[in-house]
């Protein structure tokens, strides 16, 4: 991750002509597929095992989650616009889009915190049932990924504000963008499989 800044011009010297950082990031994302796959499978196996606790349909608030899913989806748009601006060496626009992306991400995480609180108040604690544990684990892992993304976005905004050479961090922006979109596609899967398909 943090290696991003260093090989800005290295891409031209590699055997494939591709940037080390981008190759590394894509490999990492390929690996992450198996992480989320495992968590999703665990949830799928245990979603019906509610014990004496509430069932998924009792605690899920589909309209609310639909809105926060939409927010996260739109953050992918603002992210891709940031990448676009970075490649056009427009650091002002990049900073703006990155900030908006981070805000949308924060809205999503805020929504998740609200959702978790509401569920907890309805009697769904972390260890209430297998459904509860696997649901909180899966969505919690996703939430942590989004949070890490927000931290990276904000750090990047800070770095860009001090940067003297416009566009010099374009590849870093692109890398964080890849990570951000990945977190978004994971949510696309989670939203459908976990929320929309009834048990």
């Amino acid at each position: 991750m943090a290696e991003t800044a260093t090989h800005e011009h290295a891409a031209h010297h590699t055997s494939t002509g591709l940037s080390n950082n981008k190759l590394g990031m894509w490999l990492f994302l390929g690996s992450e597929c198996l992480l989320f796959g495992g968590l999703i499978s665990t949830y799928m196996l245990y979603r019906g095992r509610v014990g004496t606790g509430p069932t998924p349909s009792q605690v899920f608030d589909i309209p609310f989650t639909s809105v926060s899913s939409f927010v996260l989806l739109m953050s992918s748009l603002t992210m891709v616009l940031a990448v676009s601006a970075a490649h056009n060496k427009d650091d002002r626009a990049t900073t703006l889009w990155l900030t908006i992306t981070a805000l949308l991400g924060a809205t999503f995480v805020g929504g998740q915190v609200y959702e978790f609180t509401a569920m907890y108040n309805e009697g769904l604690g972390f260890s209430t049932s297998l459904f509860a544990s696997s649901f909180y684990t899966l969505t919690g892992f996703h939430g942590v990924h989004v949070t890490v993304g927000i931290i990276m976005l904000m750090s990047l905004v800070g770095i860009l504000n001090k940067s003297k050479v416009p566009g010099s961090r374009a590849e870093t922006v692109e890398m964080i963008g890849l990570y951000w979109h990945f977190v978004d596609v994971v949510w696309i899967v989670i939203f459908t499989l976990i929320y929309l398909i009834p048990v």
Binding site: L18, W26, L27, L29, G30, S31, C33
Partner: peptide, 12 residues
């Protein structure tokens, strides 16, 4: 890039 990502995805 596609190969790397989709290999992981389909393996998963």
């Amino acid at each position: 890039f596609s190969w790397m990502f989709y290999t992981g995805l389909f393996l998963a």
